[in-house]
């Protein structure tokens, strides 16, 4: 097993483990911290996939932006930190059956399918290529996203402000 493989399994365990903490913990703050490590794990996997830019963006936006915002929200609203956030209806057996079934189908599919593989990875900076693609082949998705963000901003400002 080479270094990349070992690193992959470490990051994967980190992601899945912290995602588990996030889902199962009673306290919202702990869940948020679980989410933090899950984001880091995913960022690590991006690095292994030679997607350096996405990895940095993942940390900058998800950890630096969204998660901090979420934590602030939780901490500023005092009631939330003490509330048991788990739902009242616990249907353990049906949930295990359904989730187990879905997992089995997914595992079977993933292992039995001849996926189209990307080939060998080259570790080199990707920002230049991404920038070029955004201005050429992916121009329209880039522009759609910008109008989408404008509309979302207007909407968010409307909902947040007092009348």
């Amino acid at each position: 097993m080479d270094f990349t493989n070992i690193a992959f399994y470490i990051f994967a365990a980190l992601t899945v483990g912290s995602a588990g903490v996030m889902v199962f913990h009673r306290n919202v703050v702990y869940s948020a911290v679980g989410l933090l490590f899950a984001f880091f794990g995913v960022a690590g996997i991006y690095v292994l996939l030679a997607a350096d830019f996405i990895a940095i963006v993942q940390i900058l936006i998800y950890v630096g932006g969204i998660l901090i915002l979420l934590l602030f929200g939780v901490m500023l609203s005092q009631k939330l930190t003490k509330v048991d956030v788990r739902t009242e209806s616990m249907q353990l057996v049906p949930a295990v059956v359904v989730v187990g079934g879905v997992l089995a189908v997914l595992l079977l599919t993933i292992s039995s399918t001849p996926w189209k593989l990307a080939g060998s990875l080259e570790y080199e900076p990707t920002t230049k290529a991404i920038g070029r693609l955004m201005m050429t082949e992916y121009l329209i998705p880039f522009e759609i996203a910008s109008v989408l963000l404008l509309a979302a901003l207007i909407g968010a400002a409307y909902i947040a402000r007092k009348n």
């Binding site: 329209i140 998705p141 759609i144 109008v147 989408l148 509309a151 909407g155």
Partner: peptide, 18 residues
Amino acid sequence: NLVTILLSIEFVSIVSFV
């Protein structure tokens, strides 16, 4: 294209929420 399909569906959804 899968990218534009996803983006446009999200576009419609997010504006509809507001």
